[in-house]
Design a protein around this nucleic acid. Structure first.
Lengths: 158, 158
DNA sequence: ACACTTATTCTGAGTGACTCATAATAAGCC
DNA sequence: GGCTTATTATGAGTCACTCAGAATAAGTGT
């Protein structure tokens, strides 16, 4: 009875080394986001409630922002969408958002190194110390491309 | 008396060629955004009211999103900030947001061409037709760098 | 196993940033 | 000067969070 009869979640150790207590709520949120990357807070509430029926929306918000701050989750803010979360952190990936249906795909860095970290400033700007550069691609996914035939040309906005 | 006694706004022609009527509200909004790039909707309301005291917040929202749709304004959505607008459209520039004070600077493309428009997809992603790639840099501006001495290292997130 | 401290979660209210439906107004055209 | 229809104003409502304070439960020590 003293021994652990439930399997220890793979998230317990990461939580501990982030200096956070291991709670059922946090484990459930992490599992939900891992199962469905790019989930919104609302998605997470729905998913988690199948396991923890009474969890509140507010708690999910608190847990999500706390886990984001501790580096276990990454928060992305796609245009015209509530914030989304994923467990894939600490790698150089970005996101592509379909302007038709809103679906989000992961994108690795095309260049390998980081040219965008040494930006060329526009005239009149003071120079900032850049820490991160996030790229958000927008385009049409294969499904939406079929339904809407004639599209704007590819624009060089980078 | 029939001749134009007020100088024709430089924005009249662009509005017309975008198929939009030339109204005082639109001219005032465009002038305000041109004067203060990266303005929020609220900033615009304040600025415009010095000229058009009775304009409503809702109208400003409508005008801003309409002008964005017609390509006269560009809307940017910095993290943890309401949407911002600028008149500088159709050029390849991006933005750097100071994580300390929130100030926003313009950044030209560092690479000149557009490597990010040919992204390398992560496994499991379907290929989208990319139309635009927006880069958001985050870092510390010179002012904030002085006040907060020890900072996280530069991270390659691109 | 039990108490204790404090992080975490819950309860309930509140805010910021928009969005929508409908009525009034005013550009642009004849 | 009228007319048509795009714009703007009015007023209400929603979405995505955020905050204060009370209740609960991890983790720690005994």
């Amino acid at each position: 009875m003293t021994e652990q009869n439930a399997p220890v979640s793979p998230w317990a150790a990461p939580l501990r080394s982030a200096g956070r207590r291991v709670t059922r709520q946090r484990l459930a949120v992490l599992a939900a986001v891992e199962r469905s990357p790019h989930s919104t807070a609302d998605d997470v509430v729905t998913a988690v409630r199948s396991e923890l029926a009474d969890i509140t929306v507010q708690s999910v918000y608190v847990v999500l922002s706390d886990l984001t701050e501790s580096g276990l989750l990454r928060r992305i803010e796609p245009p015209h969408s509530p914030a989304r979360y994923e467990t894939r952190v600490n790698d150089n990936h970005h996101h592509a958002v379909c302007t038709g249906c809103g679906r989000i795909e992961d994108v690795d860095c095309a260049v390998g190194h980081a040219p965008c970290l040494t930006p060329s400033w526009s005239p009149g700007s003071s120079r900032m110390t850049i820490q991160i550069a996030d790229v958000v691609y927008q385009g049409l996914c294969t499904d939406c491309r079929e339904t809407s035939p004639n599209l704007p040309e590819l624009t060089e906005t980078h």
